[in-house]
Amino acid sequence: MPTNQSDFFLIGDSNASVIARAANAQGYTFKGRAIGPGRIFDTDFFTVKGDRFVMTLPEKTNNVAPDSFFDLLEWKGPILSTVGFNSQLIGQTVARDMRIHGLDARNLSQAVLEALVGNWKAPALRFYSLLVERGCDIWFTHSPQRFPDLYFDVAIRLENILRQRLIDLGVSPVDVRAATTDSEGKLLEQLHSDLPRDQTHGNIEWGGLVFGDFARQAGLSA
């Protein structure tokens, strides 16, 4: 039986690892973990066996222990997820593919992008749907909004489409973008990852802002 000794459940990509570190730094504990590369959530990445949530791609998940998420569906506390918000990958893939053909991804219509998200993010959407159906207290949060100019626009649009799909499903947003981005919507420089050559992630301060908003909305107390 699951216990609520931890404060929340965490599942997500590499962005979740920054949030995890920030949560730990603030004295919170959590179950689950950040898995690593977000692309695994773009394929069928889970199955349900009884009440167990089983990751089906352990070999691609930084050696995630098979039982890391077994009791996700029975977890009674809040769940924070970054699943599906590997927007740098989808934005980059679309923009680069189109540029190869001399085309500008920014010219794609909203309807095309919505169809694209519906297909590309189908595994992620199934994940959130499952948790909503099971009555889980599930929250999602955005990527740090840190993309090169080549695909900034399309990545943001794609991410906002996914955001709306999740809100429509009944998933609650943790959205700190107003406090963490500049007038163009780009992650503030002081919140960039400290790691050399990291062009994508936020730093622990960003993670702290995300987690702080989540904790406040979810009513967590350290």
Partner: peptide, 17 residues
């Protein structure tokens, strides 16, 4: 096809568009 569908757009949607 000089204006191919963006990657991951399903065939059915690609045709509709």
């Amino acid at each position: 096809d000089f204006e191919p569908a963006p990657p991951m757009l399903p065939d059915e949607a690609a045709k509709a568009f």
